[in-house]
């Protein structure tokens, strides 16, 4: 989503871009990366648009500024909405991606998208994620033609980043408000609150929507400590990829888990392990075993 259906007339002029995120901390809903870009010659006018760090603005003011910047012909913008399902899946994948890396990839994806539209980006301003120097080097290696400024609180230091933070925040708030709940249980309500773990409304929602087997509806980020804490004491689910992480008896546990059909992990299975010595290789390799009792 963004203003990228049409390459702006000023695309061939040297341009700057600001990038910021909204919804990094919440346990509910998507994380949104937003960017705003414009010709460097327009930079002085940016200050007069009264963009400020989106967190310091009231919601109505943010909405108003967002609508204004969409109408401004000298500004371009784009967002990357990262679904909570995608966040959970990546952070809980067999090859796990941490949140910083997901954030970096999203920011770089936005830069690439704007470059691919034919916008001549020469400067980029970003709020840091992780160590600012390392992040800047990573970005510069990927996009050698752009000068990067990575700093803490970039959203209050640079108006172009403030603009990006408004785009991101408004998009994130709307996405949560309009979230299409995939699950169809009758007891699901939409009182998500802000989605932050400390928000009483969010806390209440998590308690009300906890499911002993499925955990939570897919709006929740399962990879968050808040979720894992809630699910302690609910039905235990163990994964082969997690077992492999733990060193030690991992291979044995893994073999047990993937045994044909029987995933109840009874201790009795120890003695009839399919990898037992003397069994034909054909059966060992396929984890097939004869059961006389179960």
């Amino acid at each position: 989503m963004g203003s990228d259906c049409l390459t702006p007339e000023w695309a061939s002029q040297p341009c700057l871009i600001g990038i910021d995120e909204a919804g990094r901390g919440p346990v509910l809903g998507p994380m949104v990366y937003g960017c705003m870009y414009c010709p460097i010659s327009y930079q002085s006018s940016l200050a007069s648009l009264h963009f400020a760090d989106s967190k310091t603005l009231k919601e109505e003011k943010r909405e108003e500024l967002y609508e204004n910047l969409k109408l401004d012909k000298s500004l371009g913008w784009a967002v990357d909405v990262i679904d909570p399902r995608e966040l959970s899946a990546k952070m809980l994948a067999k090859n796990k991606t941490n949140l910083n890396e997901i954030s970096h990839n999203s920011a770089m994806g936005l830069i690439k998208r704007v470059l691919d539209m034919g916008v001549l980006l020469t400067e980029a301003y970003l709020d840091t994620v992780g160590d600012p120097d390392k992040y800047r080097i990573k970005l510069s290696e990927r996009f050698p033609s752009i000068k990067f400024v990575v700093s803490k609180k970039a959203d209050s230091l640079f108006p172009v980043v403030s603009g990006a933070s408004i785009v991101a925040k408004v998009t994130r708030d709307r996405a949560l408000r309009e979230w299409l709940v995939e699950e169809t249980g009758e007891d699901i309500n939409r009182n998500f609150g802000s989605g932050y773990p400390g928000d009483p409304e969010t806390k209440a929602w998590l308690v009300q929507h906890k499911h002993s087997v499925f955990g939570f509806p897919s709006l929740a980020r399962f990879s968050w400590g808040t979720c894992t804490a809630h699910l302690k004491g609910e039905v235990e689910v163990s994964w082969e990829s997690d077992e492999a992480d733990e060193s030690g008896n991992s291979s044995k546990r893994q073999a047990k888990l993937s045994r044909f059909g029987f995933t109840t992990c009874e201790s009795r299975s120890e003695e009839i392990e399919s990898s037992g010595k003397g069994r034909c290789k054909f059966f060992q390799a396929r984890k097939i075993q004869q059961l006389t009792q179960f």
Partner: peptide, 20 residues
């Protein structure tokens, strides 16, 4: 459904409401 995990539970669950 044959899942790649071990669910330590034996009983009915609202599969069609949650597993999509």
């Amino acid at each position: 459904h044959q899942l790649p995990c071990c669910i330590r539970f034996d009983g009915p669950a609202q599969v069609s409401h949650y597993f999509k």
